[in-house]
């Protein structure tokens, strides 16, 4: 009976894994397809990978995407973590209000958030890399706050206060008491923010100016004419690299758990 259940569980997990990874496999295969047509297999080639490194447009979009993800995640941490600490110290009513406001960007449809920010930006600042960065920070902060808040709730704030009472400066107390406690929350918040920013299309699409392209908006622009195969090559490289880094990371943290 137990064996039977094991088999069923295994089959089901396999089914979901196929569902999640089938399209990714298709894209990886396409990156080695020498035929420009997506439906026919023209033989194995590495030429798209070579061409990728001569395609400045795609490389530029890639750099923009990474800078955006890294910058918006980092700034979201700098605003979100102190924000969460401050909100946690507030009275019940103000705490609830702030958390409700924090939930707005997560509850609102991306298209509404993107349009609302765009209408705001066109009145005051030029649509550019800067406006997209501001927009990404805005949707990243709630994820940072929501991943740090449980940590703050679990930790005993009195320890920080005791450290301070015993004469430690705020900087010392922050780095030696607070930060180690909050670090897992900060890291998962950063990772979430980075991932969401890399994968975002809708909000970038509405808040970007002409001439600014992330990988998402560039791919969207290519849909009608046909995706450049170099794009499959780049995506495959990103995917494989991140998988490797994450497996190493998970391996390390799994070892720590033991």
């Amino acid at each position: 009976m137990k064996r039977f259940k094991d088999i069923i569980s295994g089959i089901y997990i396999g089914f979901i894994a196929v569902l999640l990874y089938a399209p990714i496999l298709v894209l990886i295969v396409e990156s080695f397809n020498s035929s420009r047509s997506r439906v026919t297999w023209g033989g194995f080639t590495l030429s798209w990978y070579v061409k990728l490194f001569n395609n400045n447009q795609i490389l530029e979009a890639f750099i923009t995407t990474v800078l955006l993800a890294f910058g918006s995640a980092a700034i979201a941490i700098l605003i979100g973590v102190p924000g969460a600490l401050g909100i946690h110290a507030m009275g019940r009513k103000r705490y609830k209000t702030m958390m409700a406001l924090t939930n707005i960007p997560m509850l609102n449809a991306d298209i509404v958030t993107g349009i609302a920010l765009m209408l705001w930006f066109v009145h005051f600042i030029p649509l550019s890399f800067g406006s997209v960065l501001l927009a990404h920070i805005s949707f990243n902060i709630p994820y940072v706050i929501l991943s740090v808040m449980p940590r703050i709730q679990q930790m005993n704030v009195s320890i920080y206060e005791a450290t301070r009472d015993l004469g430690a400066g705020p900087v010392y107390a922050f780095f030696h008491v607070l930060l180690p406690e909050l670090l897992p929350g900060i890291l998962s918040g950063f990772f979430m923010a980075f991932t969401l920013s890399m994968d975002d299309f809708v909000i970038t699409y509405f808040t970007k100016g002409a001439g600014v392209n992330t990988l998402s908006t560039m791919i969207y622009g290519q849909i009608k004419k046909g995706i450049k195969p170099e794009m499959y090559a780049l995506s495959t490289l990103i995917f494989v690299l991140v998988s490797l880094l994450l497996s190493i990371g998970t391996g390390i943290s799994a070892k720590k758990e033991h």
Binding site: L20, Y21, P23, E30, T195, M198, I227, S235
Partner: peptide, 16 residues
């Protein structure tokens, strides 16, 4: 397992 797919651009995944 669940987040890794997000590292392949979602428009490309939908095209797939």
């Amino acid at each position: 397992i669940l987040i890794l797919p997000m590292w392949m651009n979602f428009i490309l995944r939908i095209l797939a």
